[in-house]
Amino acid sequence: MIRSTHLPLLVTLATFILAYALCVYAYPSMLSTRVVANLLTDNAFLGIAAVGMTFVILSGGIDLSIGSVIAFTGVFLAVILRDTSVHPLIAFMLVLTITTAFGAAMGGLIHYLEMPPFIVTLAGMFLARGAAYVLSTESVPITHEFYDVLQGLYWKAPSGGRFRLIGGVMVLTFLVGVLVAHRTRFGQNVYALGGGGQTAKLMGSPIASTTVGIYAISGGLAGLAGIVFSLYTSAGYSLATVGVELDAIAAVVIGGTLLTGGYGYVAGTFFGILIMGLIQTYIVFDGTLSSWWTKIVIGGLLFAFIVLQKGLTWATQARRRAATGFADPS
């Protein structure tokens, strides 16, 4: 059964299908597993980070630190693999622990000091970026046979597309994200927090642990995105992924999640990511357009989705008035 709360998700899905159809109409060769596989591979790190951002935004918060955390993770891995003989898997565990703890600490500050997430994560953004600079100001290449093994893992579709490991990690992250958001108590508490913190508290929802958990997830997934990014680029660079947090926010909003929190779906973010990747692919195929057109189209899409969300909010309120029979909510 289609409910009005599903509408933004359906709009996102329809946008994706329409956009893909337009692309294929212009360049029939875009309808291939190769393009799909590249979409997943190229956007893997952004997608993983956007899952965390979806949780944050669903709860009514924001996390500006993820771009810096991704860069920090890359530099951290590169430096540790260059200077020590630690196995990459152990380095992964280490960096995931650090980034998760970092996110949890930000969540704790947000909850216990009642600070706006914007400020706290802005501070986190500078901290993480600064820490990356401290480790190395130059791009550090990663050369490790384990990395070569991971990068060599792919499944080749009959028609030629190579579905690489990192794309799979992203899809898996989304699947787990969907499950956590909709089928666990934690997920329900995230929605409750986004619907109204004070009310959720009065209903006995554990606000503190939920807030800490949300930012821990966002930090941890930013760490995972950093690992994926290092696999993607085979390097760690402290100036990388500047502004990725904003791309992630854009993907979440295009995916139909309300910026004020409480409404939205993790699955929507997946299509938000795909739409953004599709625009980029189209520009590559075209060859004559400047890559900045990506930004312009994404900007236009964002505006369109914000207007759509506002419209839906109005429609819901009008329906509520009709349901309660009051001329104005009093």
Binding site: Q188, A192, G196, A200, M203
Partner: peptide, 15 residues
């Protein structure tokens, strides 16, 4: 004091 963004059942059984 219920959450407008959740369904009736979700509100009833939150937590």
């Amino acid at each position: 004091n219920l959450l407008p963004n959740l369904t009736v059942a979700e509100n009833l059984y939150l937590g």
